[in-house]
Design a protein around this nucleic acid. Structure first.
Lengths: 199, 199
DNA sequence: GTCTATATCCCGATAGAC
DNA sequence: GTCTATCGGGATATAGAC
């Protein structure tokens, strides 16, 4: 019988996961150390390992806890909505994720960049979701509601362009100076998609 | 007086740099080990460290040796050429880099993702180059030769969309199946830019 | 120039007192 | 539940023979 977690247990677990997000997103799995995470969480290293059996377990749980946040905007794209609005809304929500959750974006980027060893198990579900939404987009194109474009590469365009501002933040800011890039990015992305999708 | 390197020295150094590219691009700086690089280069670990003083030095030199390859396509964008052709050619050359040099792309991505600790010194030169080319694009827009768009975000679009296919290769192939994504990507990128830039 | 052997350090994880 | 102390493995780098 598993006992229900106490409040203090839940609080510590949550603190550790946040600290893990901070450290893993900056240094990657190998680059992060348990000591760093423990310090960031305000705990000693053995105390942290009292709550999670291993560094690997922390990483797994951080990733898993963020999957829904990451894919919900695409899930919410509605086949019965106005096509242009649906796609623009999806892109804007994805850009908002980059702005509001850059650490999460870099965590995923670090993982996929190195071959997704701890994320590959999610790819079948991702493929199903993208297939489903690509079919929706293709139907819109077939019905002449949007221009005829490849729906998969359209999705990649949205992923690439939005995540770029989070994942390559230091480079973007080095080029632009210290100005906030997101207002300009939103206008540009909106403009690009309108031009691309106009029937 | 530094003696000129012998042929065997140059060959070994070159072999080590190639091995370093392979290993660093797959595992990142911290994730890579000197043993892995030595094995990939067909040398013993002390022998490798006879040619380079440290793991850090190998990483630095690999990065530095690739900077020109990475920025030449943008440097070659010609203010006196046909605007649409110049931008489309730039984007295509950048996509070719992703296809032909994915390890190099991932090496840079790993580095920038983690805050560019070993690459930040190149940012001033990058900023100058981008400023120069953004000015060229802005002039084309002012002259009505292309649509009025933000030249910086246009450059980010090209970077993001082309590098996505190299950096997130495993995800792209998981979604598309095992088909080669590059032919479709080239068509889509070309189409997107033509639509976006048409006056 | 290349090797074996090793010094030295750091990291993940555990033991055991409290 | 939390700590100090530490084990054991693996990493970078060096010593020194050949």
């Amino acid at each position: 019988m598993t006992k229900p977690a106490t409040r203090i247990q839940q609080k510590n677990r949550s603190t550790i996961l946040t600290a893990g997000l901070n450290v893993f997103s900056q240094f990657g799995f190998r680059g992060a150390t348990v000591d760093q995470i423990a310090t960031a969480a305000g705990l000693s290293k053995p105390n942290l390992l009292y709550y999670f059996p291993s560094k690997e377990a922390i990483h797994q749980e951080v990733l898993a806890s963020l999957l829904d946040l990451w894919l919900d905007p695409l899930r919410d794209m509605n086949a019965n909505g106005d096509p242009i609005t649906e796609i623009l809304t999806y892109a804007q929500r994805k850009l908002d994720l980059s702005r509001d959750y850059p650490r999460e974006s870099r965590l995923f980027a670090n993982e996929i960049l190195q071959g997704a060893p701890r994320l590959a198990y999610t790819f079948p579900a991702l493929q199903s979701l993208v297939d489903e939404k690509a079919t929706v987009i293709q139907t819109w194109a077939n019905d002449g509601k949007i221009a005829a474009i490849d729906p998969y590469h359209l999705i990649f365009l949205i992923w690439a362009q939005t995540q770029h501002y989070a994942d390559f933040d230091v480079q973007v800011r080095a080029v632009l100076g210290s100005d906030d890039p997101y207002p300009g990015a939103a206008i540009f992305l909106n403009h690009t998609l309108r031009r691309l999708l106009a029937p």
